[in-house]
Design a protein around this nucleic acid. Structure first.
Length: 794
DNA sequence: GCGTTCAATGTACCT
DNA sequence: ACAGGTACATTGAACGCG
């Protein structure tokens, strides 16, 4: 029987007869299925020394009778572009591969063993061209089994699944949840604090709540939650921060209570796996917090903030409850309803965010071939790496071992000194995908690099400016092939998108896919220079950067020769006074001489540069401000300062009246001193970037974190701490309090005036001769006194 | 002993 | 745990003074 299925999850089971690949999927009919493939043998390579005799090595391997080796064959492969002979060693037990590889490394003639570190599931996906979140066709027979598996059919595969062109996504059942723990003081711990609530929302628009009774006994609610999951039988389970918090907590708590957290499709419990994600067999467990980085505009990445940003639930419409307050809300019967509402709303937010993110997540999973539950947890470097690993099947490249390389810095891009002040009518020109195109044009790749001592190969080399690294022109390298394909695929998707209705599901899927392709394309250069990369090759990254510098420097020269006035530039962009005919000519000349495409990007009616690089603000034709690098864009300044600076920029750019802006600042400071600004606008957020003991100096946010810990609130690396500066003497770090522990009365308003609002405003206004002192003086509030406008006009 | 100076530290941003 | 280039606030030790 032939069936078509969409691959949701993969795992493997080791049985006496060997390992089985378990493919979990959704049939085209909508049936949920498990397909078991018992016909795949895991393997690794023993790479031979040059000139070694393969048959002798094979004899020796065969003599190692104690090793669970099933089959051996000689093969031709490539390693960093060089042809090598290797012995492919098949093992029945995937878990014994590393042991085998270690033993075979000692055999004479064996240079090294490779790919023993590729896990069975990934091996299966790569070798058989089976792709997560993709459709396949496979021959199967129904399995007569007594196994308790929560799907419509269990099949045994009678062929290898064959990838289909079909690119839609089946209708999936999604379940989102949030939890509430009860702890009077400090972070909840599974060994002492019960789960008092779990709220659930599903893709079918239903919600469910499980709350503890008066005795706070969580056993019944946990049992009810498990039953709810099994009953709904979702394909995808989503939450926010679930990999690090909820799943470990719930698993541990259930263990304490003697319960089984059987939320999967077999009867196993959630378990931590690759990249720290939690695996739920037969379902895709997706932690939405893994995708928060896709939204850099959101600075403090809480569920509430992300939902607000995505327009799912506006924060103003909500009652927010801090962790510190949860127990109080629960204990106070008059407030308990608010806590329940808060939790349910959060579950709805989780479902809303899932709907916004899952398309992208599935396309990313499909593109790089990491299962949906792995791909979010995998860092950018690993996503690129698996994308490349997947391509070794065609290229015959062996996958290198991961070797931690010593860090060796190299020079990167050029940033031009901006011409400070206001400029009218400026155009930004930029190279699209500069590094990827450079890597393609000059065939920069780990397998095309020609080390200095090697003679120039036939067919010639490209030699990078300044750094002089050489790369063979032919054949096309591993990176070039991958990048060309990515760029071509993205162009195809984008042209296809134009023919699809912008609101159609097809358009959504295509847009998600082109974003996934873009992310991987843009990360390839960084990957090449990452010391943790399997295909790390510093000369590749260094040469790309050198060609980038050459490109932008040449472009500036051409622009100036053309008579254009270049006012700024960074890496792959230049900003110039807009003279359309000259720009037209430049675009053509650059393309001709450099073989790279530069195009018009943003047009600025007016643009303002400070004296610093990477910080400017421009007025766009539609009236929007484009603010870059300034305090407005930063997450570590109090909202008061950011709001004032934004208003100042608005006045300066639109009305061209620094005096009016200065007046606004003075008035604002008056309001600030009257304590009329919202308390939350005074909070400063900073990330804990390392463990407490590793800090060499004292600092405000570290001190605030210490105070939280003292009260039992656990913080870990990567967490953001919100604090305010309070009245008192001494260093800044001696006058800090976590914002939930301080009151408005304690706040040191003068700090916010002199160290937040005024510097942020002065960053802009200093260019117009307005000093911090002038901004701080409140003389405009006194009747009859001279106003700044008297000095500067309006 | 005290105020000033400046390199080091730490975070977050830009492309 | 993709790269390097950059700004900026704050700390804290070195420095200068007499």
């Amino acid at each position: 029987m032939k069936i078509s299925f969409w691959l949701l999850d993969i795992n493997y089971e080791v049985k006496d007869k060997g390992a089985e690949a378990w493919l979990w999927g959704v049939e085209i009919t909508g049936k949920r299925v498990l397909i078991i493939d018992r016909d795949f043998l895991d393997y690794f390579y023993a790479v031979l020394n040059e000139g070694a005799d393969p048959s002798r090595v094979i004899e020796e391997i065969k003599s190692e009778k104690h090793l669970p080796i099933e089959k051996i064959e000689t093969v031709e492969r490539k390693f960093f572009g060089k042809p090598v002979k290797a012995v492919k060693v098949y093992c029945k037990d995937p878990d014994a591969m590393s042991k085998c590889a270690r033993a075979l490394r000692n055999i004479e003639g064996v240079n090294d063993c490779l790919e023993n570190d590729i896990r069975f599931s990934m091996r299966y996906l790569i070798d058989n061209n089976v792709v997560p979140c993709g459709w396949h066709e496979v021959d199967v027979v129904e399995e007569k089994s007594s196994m308790e598996v929560h799907v419509d059919h269990v099949y045994e595969a009678k062929s290898k699944p064959k990838l289909l062109e079909k690119s839609d996504v089946p209708k999936l059942k999604i379940l989102g949840f949030t939890t509430t723990y009860y702890s009077k003081e400090g972070s909840p711990k599974p060994n002492r604090n019960p789960v008092i609530g779990i709220s659930v929302a599903t893709s079918q628009g239903k919600t469910k709540e499980f709350w503890a009774k008066e005795d706070n006994d969580d056993k019944p609610l946990l049992e009810a939650f498990v039953a709810c999951v099994r009953d709904f039988n979702p394909d995808v389970v989503v939450g926010y921060g679930v990999n690090g918090n909820d799943w470990p907590y719930l698993t541990d708590r259930c263990k304490q209570l003697g319960l089984h957290l059987y939320v999967d499709r077999t009867k196993t419990e959630p378990h931590t796996s690759s990249y720290g994600h939690v695996s739920i067999t037969g379902r895709a467990n997706v932690d939405l917090s893994d995708y928060a980085d896709e939204f850099p505009e959101v600075k403090v990445k809480t569920l509430e903030n992300l939902a607000d940003y995505l327009g799912i639930m506006k924060i103003e419409s909500r009652i927010l409850i801090e962790d510190v307050e949860v127990a109080n809300y629960w204990d106070d019967k008059t407030k308990r309803q608010m806590l329940k509402r808060f939790s349910l709303d959060n579950a709805r937010c989780v479902m809303g965010i899932a709907e916004a993110i899952l398309d992208f997540a599935m396309q990313l999973s499909n593109l790089v071939s990491l299962p949906l539950d792995h791909v979010g947890a995998a860092a950018a470097g690993f996503r690129v790496e698996w994308f490349l690993a997947k391509r070794t099947r065609e290229s015959g490249e062996l996958i290198p071992k991961r070797i931690e390389q010593p860090y060796r810095p190299y020079s990167g891009a050029i940033v031009l000194e901006p011409k400070p002040g206001l400029h009218e009518n400026v155009i930004a020109l930029d190279f699209k995908s500069m590094y990827p195109n450079i890597m393609i044009n000059y065939n920069l790749s780990p397998d095309t690099y020609v080390p200095p001592k090697e003679p120039e190969p036939e067919g010639g080399v490209y030699e990078a400016p300044e750094v002089k690294h050489r790369f063979r022109k032919e054949p096309p390298g591993f990176y070039k092939q991958a990048l060309s394909e990515l760029i071509e695929v993205r162009n195809k998707i984008r042209s296809k998108m134009k023919t699809a209705d912008a609101k159609s599901p097809q358009h959504r899927v295509l847009d998600a896919r082109q974003k996934a392709v873009k992310v991987i394309t843009n990360a390839m250069y960084g990957y090449a220079g990452w010391t943790g990369a399997r295909w790390y090759m510093k000369p590749v990254a260094e040469a790309a950067a050198a060609w980038g510098r050459h490109t932008i420097a040449s472009t500036i020269k051409m622009a100036e020769n053309e008579g254009l006035n270049v006012v700024y530039g960074d890496t792959d962009s230049i900003f110039a006074k807009n003279e359309p005919e000259k720009v037209d000519k430049l675009l053509v000349e650059v393309k001709e001489k450099l073989g790279l495409e530069i195009s018009r990007d943003k047009m600025y009616v007016r643009i303002f540069f400070t004296e610093a690089k990477k910080r400017y603000a421009g007025l766009l034709p539609d009236g929007q401000l484009d603010i870059v690098g300034l305090e407005v864009m930063r997450g570590d300044w109090a909202a008061v300062a950011k709001k004032v600076q934004e208003e100042v920029l608005e006045i300066v750019l639109k009305e061209q009246s620094p005096a009016k802006a200065a007046k606004f600042v003075q008035d604002f400071i008056y309001e600030l001193r009257q304590k009329r600004v919202a308390y939350r606008d005074l909070i400063i957020w900073k990330t804990l970037a390392k463990p407490a003991e590793e800090y060499a100096v004292k600092a405000a946010h570290i001190e605030a974190a210490r105070m939280l810990r003292e009260k039992g609130w656990e913080l870990s690396v990567g967490d953001k701490v919100g604090y305010v500066i309070v009245n008192g003497a001494g260093r800044l770090y001696e006058r800090v309090k976590p914002y939930m522990f301080a009151t408005y009365d304690e706040v040191d308003i003068e700090y916010y005036a002199t160290k937040q609002v005024v510097p942020a405003a002065a960053r802009v206004l200093a260019s117009f001769g307005i000093t911090e002192d002038q901004l701080l003086s409140n003389e405009t509030k006194e009747k009859g006194s001279k106003k700044l406008t008297d000095f500067f006009g309006s």
